[in-house]
């Protein structure tokens, strides 16, 4: 993780140097202000975008009880608790600090998971808050967002600023180089941020296993969310006698897409949770 963060630092340092050297200071300043405003309003913006509403203990007593238990063990202030009316099963934590944090679950998630699995998922989100992952990832992605916003500005400049109308227009060349640099920063930065994010997800899974001492509850939730539960046959063995005599194990490996994925594969997460379970079993 240290190497990933170091590489990100070097990449962003080179990007800032380029932006300052090529006279894009004003543009960079505008984008920085926009991103800072976005950061300060992030918790409310995320909740609104996910159609999540903060609920009181009277409105969702079960959910609050779980969160109360978890924050007590984690030793952090209680975050706002929210429910999204989305039917897609998911959960998230947001907020620029532990004091301004919120944890939310969708109605779809509450319908699919039992209480122990829900506790596992909430423990994962509480772990994100405890280790300030939202802040870490925001800082890590900061210049990525700056680069993306800058490239949009540059695109508009190129289209409406008259680039290419004159053969002697050096401004056009600078914009082209700047576009190329922002593109490279977005690709490499995107991969590094995704790598960092995967570390943080593994870390939050481990945190959840520690908070609940039930790693398999989270593994079960992950399987359900992955759609693996329907994979467990419901059909009785006696009725499945005509099943194929030979079975094929999937040999598909992780593709290039995993490099840009913010989450590790469910199989890898479950495999690690199973390791934690073996360790936790000795503590019970």
């Amino acid at each position: 993780m240290f190497i990933t963060m170091l590489l990100l630092g070097l990449l962003y340092g080179a990007f800032i140097w380029f932006a300052l050297a090529s006279g894009l200071v004003f543009m960079l300043a505008i984008v920085l202000v926009m991103v800072l405003v976005q950061f300060s309003l992030s918790d409310r913006m995320v909740l609104a975008s996910m159609r999540a509403k903060v609920v009181t203990p009277a409105e969702a007593p079960g959910l609050h009880q779980i969160v109360d238990r978890l924050v007590l063990v984690a030793g952090i202030p209680k975050p706002k608790v929210a429910i999204s009316d989305l039917l897609i099963p998911n959960a998230f934590a947001t907020g620029r600090s532990q004091k301004h944090a919120a944890v939310a679950v969708t109605k779809g998630l509450m319908d699919v998971l039992n209480e122990e699995e829900l506790e596992g998922v909430l423990a994962h989100e509480i772990s994100h808050i405890k280790t300030k992952d939202v802040v870490v990832m925001t800082y890590a992605s900061f210049f990525l967002i700056v680069a993306a916003s800058l490239s949009t500005f540059l695109m508009f400049s190129a289209i409406f600023g008259g680039m290419g109308r004159s053969r002697n227009n050096s401004g056009g060349s600078i914009i082209l180089v700047a576009l190329l640099v922002t593109f490279v920063v977005r690709i490499i930065g995107g991969m590094l941020v995704a790598t960092l994010s995967r570390y943080r997800e593994f870390s939050a899974d481990r945190g959840a296993a520690t908070l609940t001492n039930r790693p398999m509850a989270l593994a079960s939730a992950l399987e359900k969310l992955q759609g693996a539960i329907p994979k467990v046959p419901h059909q009785d063995l006696r009725k499945a006698e005509s099943m194929n005599a030979f079975f094929i194990m999937s040999a598909v490996g992780p593709g290039l897409a995993e490099l840009f994925s913010s989450h590790p594969s469910t199989a890898k997460r479950i495999a690690r949770l199973q390791q934690y379970e073996q360790q936790a079993a000795f503590l019970r």
């Binding site: 398999m216 467990v232 419901h234 063995l237 499945a240 079975f247």
Partner: peptide, 24 residues
């Protein structure tokens, strides 16, 4: 079921692909 399989896999030859975990 997952917990059981995880706990015993060093001692019993378990089959880990859940698509074969048929009930009776």
């Amino acid at each position: 079921e997952i917990r059981m399989e995880t706990a015993i896999r060093r001692d019993l030859p378990t089959f880990r692909d859940t698509s074969e975990w048929y009930p009776i």
